[in-house]
């Protein structure tokens, strides 16, 4: 099921590239190169017994481990990009870690349904007929809205952590 979704996404991306080369309207499509990475903290002890924590690619993780998801948006065109908005769904089987989202120069909002976005105080869940503030672990989407334009060659960084259930 997940694999099928990925195939559809890949097909959509390919189609976008094809159109982009033909029509001017889609010419800006390739202006931002968006890259997603997953990392986990790994403690390394050197020969002197000194512990250092480094981030390593998270290709395999166990339940309970926090994964740091980083999305970089690199403007590869010669014009600035405005209203840069990065969207990332909290991955399946994972729970967003409270206060973990960061992104310099951005307003960060969350959503439970992918439609209504707001700050933590604005998101509520109806439980037993009464509204209560949503727990961070219930957030399903994270959105970064960058306030300033992204200059040619510049890179915006959005980051959050989620724990594997």
């Amino acid at each position: 099921m997940i694999k099928r979704t990925r195939n559809i996404l890949a097909a959509a991306a390919l189609l976008a590239c094809g159109l982009g080369s033909q029509a001017y309207a889609q010419g800006v499509q390739g202006c931002i190169l968006l890259k997603s990475t997953a990392e986990i903290a790994k403690e390394v002890v050197d020969a002197k017994g000194v512990k250092t924590v480094t981030m390593v690619p998270a290709d395999k993780v166990v339940p309970g481990v926090e994964v740091t998801w980083t999305v970089t948006a690199n403007n590869i065109c010669k014009q600035p990009s405005e209203k840069v908005t990065i969207n990332n769904a909290v991955p399946a089987h994972m729970s967003y870690v409270a206060s973990s989202a960061s992104g310099a120069g951005s307003d960060i909002t969350f959503s439970l349904d992918g439609k209504t976005f707001g700050g933590p105080a604005q998101l509520t869940v109806i439980e037993n007929g009464a509204a209560r503030p949503a727990h961070a672990g219930e957030y399903k989407h994270v959105r970064w809205v960058f306030k300033d334009s992204l200059a040619p060659g510049a890179t915006a960084v959005a980051r959050f952590r989620a724990v594997l259930n």
């Binding site: 990925r6 499509q29 202006c31 931002i32 908005t85 769904a89």
Partner: peptide, 18 residues
């Protein structure tokens, strides 16, 4: 577990998604 992000942006008057 897969993750894919999207970005919406505007260049000049053209809005796009990547």
């Amino acid at each position: 577990i897969d993750n894919t992000a999207t970005v919406d942006f505007t260049v000049g008057t053209v809005t796009s998604t990547a």
